[in-house]
Design a protein around this nucleic acid. Sequence first.
DNA 1: GCGACAG
DNA 2: ATCTTGTCGC
Length: 266
Amino acid sequence: MTDSRSSISPVDLAGWPRTEEEAVAEQVRLRPLVEAFGAVPPSAKGQGRGGERVLVAGVDVAYDDENDIVAAAAVLLDLHTLEVVEEATAVGRIAFPYVPGLLAFRELPAVIDALAALGRVPDLVVCDGYGLAHPRRLGLASHLGVLTGLRTLGVAKTPFTFSHQLPGAERGEWTPLVDDTTGEEVGRAVRTRAGVKPVFVSVGHRIGLAEAVDCVLALTPRYRLPETTRRADSLCRRALAELAGKPAEGVGRLVAESVGRSVPAF
DNA sequence: GCGACAG
DNA sequence: ATCTTGTCGC
């Protein structure tokens, strides 16, 4: 047993929220289950010793609103070499409209399907968006963590409703991301590349904020965004493009593809 | 009431 | 997210 879960189960769409009220109620129910502490993975096994590599998954989704289709991708990387170990995609119908604060209900069903299609369970999942930095402290990264038991963190490209001072220009410098309604630090604005706009990192589940920032810096040797995010973004767009013209009916909610050990050039 | 608002 | 021209830089 490598993690608290040895496999990932798809969500039951029959019980998925259909209204904003139901969605908010679900966030309030899950919020107390978030664990905002934990070391850089893996903490369950031997700290990366003995040749055991740390597997980090990047997830992202792309939409075709015209045809009501969503394509998700999960790309597994070795945290130390940043090599792609495995990748998987899943497609389905869009499960919820885009509502700021309720993004998880739109993205998670497809994201979890893609993660479930991987042959291995990631030690950490990097999400495109927020975790605890959320009006009700349950952004998509935290939501995904609570639903699957996986360790997660969020990396967003904009400050959402929070405030921050610009961090120093050097890579690695950061400032707190603050919720002005409570004064608490909900994340950090992190400079992943010298002289380039910062990204916004927050805790998802089972990891501390400082540890989450360390992981993000390890995943950004060259670009502003983590390699996990870049890889997943590229893959889900390709997966969506391959569905060109196909009607939403029939797409259902099928795992479209699962490719092991591929290292695509992009 | 109005604007802002992760992706 | 998605649409969408040209442009600067490695």
